[in-house]
Design a protein around this nucleic acid. Structure first.
Length: 645
RNA sequence: GCCGUUGUAGCUCAGGGGUAGAGCACUUCCUUGGUAAGGAAGAGGUCACGAGUUCAAAUCUCGUCAACGGCUCCA
């Protein structure tokens, strides 16, 4: 008999060789039907695999992340089986589960899979799933494994097996399909009720561009059709919110082939919106003791040799600009820090001056591979809401606090209520990878952890994710569709102060090395605006939106009154326009709704007589009549609430 | 950068070896109206760019550029 500890810490006795599925059955049949895998001593196992000793157990269902992963991994096998049946002789690379679904890399010879074939594969998968095929785990020796795939003629699997240790190799058999696989898998394919092939793309074998390109087939499965439908709806919704689509429709930005790829052109409405974001942050930063600086867009090659960026990225940058007579070399600036270091250096600094905080909306240029460019999220020219704080090691903690407060303020003003904080620290096993003294690292790392706690942030700590020059804290927001986006970042840097030989005179009258902190709450204006567009679906917060209100006169007779209203609103700093086309009100409302203007102000005979306005809220409908001043207050109160003042 | 797909009016898209189509947007006229599309007329395109094949190319072929979906990369 063996002892199995359940999640509630109760211990039950079972025969040796019992499976997690048996354990589930002993609790309830209903539970057993939903079990897809089990965590045995923190390792995910097949629910059907015999347990041969004392252990703790957690039964996993579709609702556990590991359960989903297992379901999708098994789905990948099912898809491979379907593809093998439909395309005999297909060879298989790897087929893992991913964040949403799974894929399998397939070599089909000269056959191709296109969207038109998806249905065929889905149908085959459904047919196979209905058979409730089990997944049979088989231990094999390396020789057996090699023999099997040599006979099958699958060189990809052979290559994978060659890297594996004998004794650790397992096959999984389900139906007609046998795969090299570590597992675990679901008890049988019956749970896979809703199946969708999503897309197909090329992918290099083992991510190596010198190797053969395989066909990567993406799919997703769910235990219930309803869940699949919801997922497909989410994809549709994401498409509707795509910032590239909305950016065009709302006239925020555009691109021109003639200007060049990855170089965004901000249209008047987009530029105004971005300016409001900048003004907002500038105000906050001024209060927090930042000073604005301005730097040129190019820098001498020596600047980047000093910073070390030339050695590291010189080849992957835009080619240098050379002066015609002297032959000097300049680079488009790929970051602002080296310039800011020189600003720090322009005069001797005392410990009494620290911290100094230089802020700049600095436009930088980076050569990104052409296939990488994507809307505003990946561009070749972008503006960082950058600032560099030069401080003593003891001041790191307070400075982090200050930056976190700014970031939280921004998230609130822009309705990002869900976010993830990540702290990246050294890999304790590889201290040689990092520059800077142990003592300083220790100090900075514990400061960051303490600050996170004091500010009530539930931070994920990642060891080994720090940059070689210092630890950092990143913020990822979750948008309205639950997608995660990396935005703000705070990074400690011991490297540049060293390279630029920055110093300050301490109380002891000796020179000391300051610490540098890079920080960008938005990240970049381009990326941030893109994320914001997708987060709010183009319905920007009232303080930010291009047009806050539009006045819709019922007919031309009320044009004068409309202008009077406009003037009054202008006095309250409310951005509004008049739609004076000779269209019916219904039409004007429809157009204003489509333009996502938050407030529609209808004025006609009644309003003019009473000195009021009729208000309609975007997406909500008629709000009734207001006095103009009351309406202005309504708007300004709404804004105040967001900006928290 | 690599593989695949795509490129026709400001936008969304149809068509396709014999000189260009729709809806919306735009302009003008009529209409002066009460909470998601009033009517009529008009204007608008080297069919991404460059070569080639052909009596004839927007259409076929090749190349270039760009966008899209992935891969690799991201100070």
């Amino acid at each position: 008999m063996i002892n199995i500890t359940l999640p509630d810490n109760s211990v039950k006795q079972f025969e040796e060789g019992v499976s997690a599925l048996d354990v589930a059955k002993s609790i309830s049949e209903g539970l057993a039907r939903n079990v897809v895998a089990a965590k045995i001593n923190d390792e995910v196992w097949d629910a059907t695999r015999p347990i041969d000793g004392d252990c703790s157990i957690k039964l996993l269902t579709w609702n556990d992340p590991e359960g989903k992963a297992t379901v999708w991994h098994s789905s990948a096998h099912l898809m491979a089986e379907a593809i093998e049946a439909l395309y005999p002789g297909a060879k298989f690379g790897i087929g893992p589960d991913i964040e949403s679904g799974f894929y399998y890399d397939v070599d089909l010879g000269d056959r191709i899979i296109s969207e038109a074939d998806f249905k065929k594969i889905e149908d085959k998968m459904k047919e196979l799933a209905k058979k409730k095929q089990t997944f049979e785990r088989v231990d094999v020796t390396k020789d057996e494994a090699l023999k099997f795939f040599t006979e099958k003629g699958d060189e990809y699997k052979l290559e994978l097996i060659k890297d594996l240790e004998d004794g650790s190799i397992t096959f999984y058999k389900s139906g007609e399909f046998t795969d090299l696989c570590r597992g675990p898998h679901i008890p049988n394919t019956g749970i896979l009720k809703a199946i969708k092939i999503l897309s197909v793309a090329g992918a290099y074998w083992r991510g190596d561009e010198t190797r053969k390109q395989l066909t990567r087939v993406y799919g997703i499965t769910f235990p219930k059709k309803k869940e699949l439908d919801e997922y497909l709806e989410l994809l549709e919704e994401a498409k509707k919110r795509d910032h590239r689509k909305l950016g065009k429709e709302l006239e925020l930005f555009t691109f021109s082939q003639r200007v060049g790829q990855g170089l965004p052109l901000w249209l008047p409405k987009g530029a105004a919106l971005r300016e409001r974001l900048e003004t907002f942050l500038k105000k906050v930063q001024k209060k927090a003791g930042y000073e604005q600086v301005i730097c040129p867009h190019i820098g001498n090659v020596d600047l980047y040799k000093t910073s070390g960026h030339y050695q590291k990225y010189g080849e992957d940058s835009f080619r240098p600009i050379t002066t015609p007579v002297e032959g000097e070399e300049y680079f488009l600036k790929p970051m602002n820090c080296p310039h800011h270091c020189e600003i720090y250096k322009h005069k001797p600094r005392s410990y009494k001056d620290l911290p100094v905080r230089f802020a700049e909306f600095g436009t930088v240029y980076r050569y990104e591979q052409s296939g990488e460019l994507h809307g505003l999220t990946r561009v070749r020219s972008f503006t960082q809401d950058d600032a560099h704080i030069f401080c003593t090691p003891d001041q790191i903690k307070d400075e982090f606090k200050g930056v976190i407060d700014i970031i939280m303020h921004i998230f609130k003003a822009l309705n990002f209520s869900e976010f993830i904080t990540q702290i990246s620290l050294r890999d304790p096993n590889k201290p040689e990878k990092y520059i800077g003294s142990d003592e300083n690292w220790e100090k900075a790392e514990s400061a960051i952890k303490e600050v996170a706690q004091e500010r009530g942030l539930e931070a994920i700590i990642e060891y080994g994710e720090a940059a070689f020059y210092g630890p950092k804290m990143d913020f990822m927001v979750k948008d309205a569709l639950g997608r995660k986006w990396q935005l703000g970042t705070i990074q400690v840097d011991y490297n540049l102060p060293e390279r630029f030989d920055l110093n300050y005179i301490g109380a002891d009258n000796e020179k000391h090395r300051p610490v540098m902190i890079h920080r960008a709450p938005f990240g970049s204006m381009e990326r941030f605006v893109a994320v914001l567009i997708e987060h709010c679906g183009g319905n920007f917060p009232l303080w930010l939106t291009p047009e806050q209100a539009i006045i819709l006169p019922i007919s031309e007779k009320y044009q004068n009154y409309a202008e009077k209203v406009l003037n009054l609103l202008d006095n309250y700093d409310i951005r509004a326009q008049i739609d004076n086309r000779s269209e019916k009100t219904g039409r004007k409302i429809r157009d204003a709704e489509l333009k996502k203007i938050p407030y529609m102000i209808i004025v006609g005979e009644q309003e003019e007589a009473e000195g009021t306005v009729s208000i309609r809220r975007h997406g909500k409908g008629d709000l009734g009549k207001y006095k103009i001043e009351d309406f202005a207050h309504l708007i300004n109160e709404e804004i105040k609430e967001l900006l928290g003042k």
